[in-house]
């Protein structure tokens, strides 16, 4: 049974089903599944989906095999979310979907139909950067920057859920994000400072 025929399964779920060791969970029960919308089978032709991305409603046609990440990057031109491992191991494609953290490489675009998606491109309000973004620049919490959007999205979600995280809570919140240049200590500092700035209303 191919993955697009498996009802109600995200690509991550599929990977798990065949024994790939994966971490975290991204299956969202509130989503209309591909099954509900299209019946038991989608494709091989393109399917039409609707996403609310960074506040804008977008209608796109996607190959049923296309991941949410590729749809964002290749069809909507939102290339801030990065493709590094493409199997849910590094966090570089972290987006916020219906208020929860999702690895966009490990969810099929058709499974995100109807969802509200926040990406790194939507954080700043015009020229005004989000406090987490400002702190990342100030504390040099980036080097090559390829992992940075993922780290920022994980950090933003953390501070929404926990405005006063401890150092251990910060470490845990970004423990699904990998960096190779070695920015971790500056990331911890930046998230801590952003939390303090946001409490002051900064």
């Amino acid at each position: 049974m191919s993955e697009q025929q498996k009802p109600g399964l995200s690509r991550r779920g599929f990977l798990k089903g065949v024994g790939g060791g994966v971490v975290g969970v991204t299956v969202l029960p509130s989503l209309r599944t591909a099954t509900a919308r299209y019946g038991t089978s989608v494709g091989p032709g393109a399917a039409r989906i609707t996403l609310t991305v960074n506040g804008e409603k977008k209608m796109i046609e996607v190959d049923p095999r296309t991941t949410l990440l590729d749809a964002l990057r290749d069809q909507l031109g939102l290339t801030g979310s990065k493709r590094v491992c493409n199997k849910g191991q590094c966090g570089a494609c972290t987006v916020i979907l219906n208020g929860r953290s999702v690895l966009a490489c490990s969810m099929l675009a058709i499974d995100a139909d109807g969802a509200t998606v926040e990406t790194i491109e939507g954080l700043a309000k015009g020229d005004e950067l989000h406090p987490v973004q400002r702190a990342f620049i100030k504390d040099d919490a980036l080097q090559c920057g390829f992992c940075t959007p993922g780290f920022i999205m994980s950090s933003v979600l953390l501070l929404r859920q926990n405005p006063s995280p401890t150092l251990d809570e910060i470490k845990y919140a970004v423990s699904g994000n990998l960096c190779r240049c070695g920015t971790y200590p500056h990331v911890f500092k930046a998230v801590d400072e952003a939390a303090k700035a946001m409490k002051k209303g900064g």
Binding site: R73, D74, G77, L78, T79, G80, S81, K82, R83, T119, I120, E121, L123, A124, L129, Q133, F136, I137, D140, L142, G145, F146, T148, P149, I152
Partner: peptide, 16 residues
């Protein structure tokens, strides 16, 4: 820095 924290920096992978 601003390009990189907003996702606007275009890496080779991002070229269309």
């Amino acid at each position: 820095g601003a390009l990189k924290v907003t996702g606007a920096a275009q890496y080779t992978y991002d070229i269309q």
